[in-house]
Simulated assay, not measured.
Amino acid sequence: MDWKKIENVETVEDIIKESRDRAVLIFKHSTRCPISSMALDRLIRSWDHQDMGHVGIYYLDLIANRQISNSIANVFGVPHESPQVLLIKDGECFYDNSHMGINYGDLKERLETSTS
């Protein structure tokens, strides 16, 4: 996966702008949490570029960037969790999930539903 790293709050504004043209996925990852590592690994192993190449994908190391994680929670109106995925379209979070609820099939289905 070709992740774009979120390392400053300005990137959140870039995500909002990008989401007006295509769906964006944010993965908030705790580098200290084995569940987070497992969820990330499952997502990476399942990711199919043919099906999901139209999605912008962003990665946040929330241990190094907790302030940005808090900003994401505030901007998109979702409670902070870790690990967590958010799907953004037209500047709004239309789906989020965390822990073992992070599932490639669910993400793909939500994305298909949001663009139809």
Rank of each mutant, 00 (worst) to 15 (best):
M1E: 04
W3F: 15
W3P: 04
K4D: 05
K5M: 15
I6Y: 06
N8S: 15
N8K: 15
E10K: 14
T11R: 10
E13C: 05
E13R: 10
I15W: 03
K17V: 11
K17I: 10
K17R: 13
E18Q: 12
E18R: 06
S19K: 03
S19P: 07
D21E: 14
R22M: 12
A23I: 14
V24G: 01
F27Y: 11
F27T: 00
K28A: 10
K28H: 07
K28N: 12
H29M: 07
T31L: 04
R32Y: 12
C33Q: 08
P34R: 04
I35S: 10
S37I: 01
S37R: 15
S37M: 08
M38L: 15
L40T: 01
D41I: 00
R42M: 12
L43G: 07
I44G: 05
W47C: 03
W47T: 02
D48W: 09
D48P: 09
D48T: 06
D51S: 15
M52Y: 03
G53I: 05
H54Q: 13
V55R: 06
V55C: 13
V55T: 13
G56P: 11
I57L: 04
Y59I: 03
Y59M: 11
Y59A: 06
L60D: 01
A64W: 03
N65G: 09
R66D: 02
R66T: 02
Q67G: 06
Q67D: 15
S69M: 12
S71A: 14
S71Y: 15
I72H: 08
I72Q: 07
I72C: 07
V75E: 10
G77T: 05
V78D: 01
V78Y: 02
P79E: 05
P79M: 09
P79D: 03
H80R: 10
H80A: 09
H80E: 06
E81K: 11
V85T: 11
V85P: 04
L86A: 02
L86F: 00
K89P: 00
D90H: 15
E92Y: 03
E92L: 03
C93S: 12
C93M: 02
F94V: 00
F94S: 00
Y95E: 01
D96A: 09
D96H: 15
H99V: 05
H99I: 05
H99C: 06
H99P: 07
G101M: 11
I102L: 01
I102T: 03
N103C: 07
N103R: 08
G105R: 13
D106L: 11
L107E: 04
L107I: 15
K108P: 05
K108M: 11
R110M: 12
R110E: 08
T113H: 09
T113W: 05
T115K: 12
T115M: 12
S116E: 12
S116G: 09
S116A: 13
